[in-house]
Design a protein around this nucleic acid. Sequence first.
DNA 1: TTGACATATCAAGATTTCTTGGTAGCTTCC
DNA 2: GGAAGCTACCAAGAAATCTTGATATGTCAA
Lengths: 106, 106
Amino acid sequence: MTTAIAATNARSAELFHALSDEARLEIIRILLDGEHCVCDLQDHLDVAQSRLSYHLKVLKDAGVVTDRREGRWSYYTLNREAIVEAERLLAALRPASGRRLIASCC
Amino acid sequence: MTTAIAATNARSAELFHALSDEARLEIIRILLDGEHCVCDLQDHLDVAQSRLSYHLKVLKDAGVVTDRREGRWSYYTLNREAIVEAERLLAALRPASGRRLIASCC
DNA sequence: TTGACATATCAAGATTTCTTGGTAGCTTCC
DNA sequence: GGAAGCTACCAAGAAATCTTGATATGTCAA
């Protein structure tokens, strides 16, 4: 069935789309050193609150970040598994090296 | 310099955007086994010619594929270096594994 | 030369994504 | 309780992307 590849492509497209916006990449870089609350992200980036919220939602819907509520604050964390998944999907798009046929190394 | 990160983000966004469309991912999968002419791609995929041409241009502009003309035909090849570049950019977005220090926030 | 063919490009409309300003739901503090 | 703070969500407009049909460009074959 071609359906399995179609599903893989759909998931790849979703993940890569989440990663294809500069504002979202800035958010991700801030989250690289661990969990941050929205207010913290707002301090680092200079963006409208609703815009930040929108991009966080895109990231969350794609599984790239997870969130946690604590009192008034929301904390976001980069989801390592999603990045690893993206790496795996991307590696599947890398053509075999021109000369080498040895598959001893990824 | 913040500029270096901004440039990296811009390039990342460009690459990931090229990879964030299902039609383009289908093209890439066909090119995985080597060079193909446009007519060949058209046989495999069921898309309008101008649509195919558009997506090939997006891929080419991002450096994901290269093209070569021979007589009436155009041949496209997946650019391994671009995929490797994307892998490298993606790896930089992967948080360190294991425990992390909670950043003081708010 | 003429005609058929392969592909790129263009313009217009359709669709999706993004931004902005406003508002509403919680929560905490007074 | 009321006010203030933090964040999500919504609606409308703006902007970007995608699709489609038409046309242009270059090539080969007769």
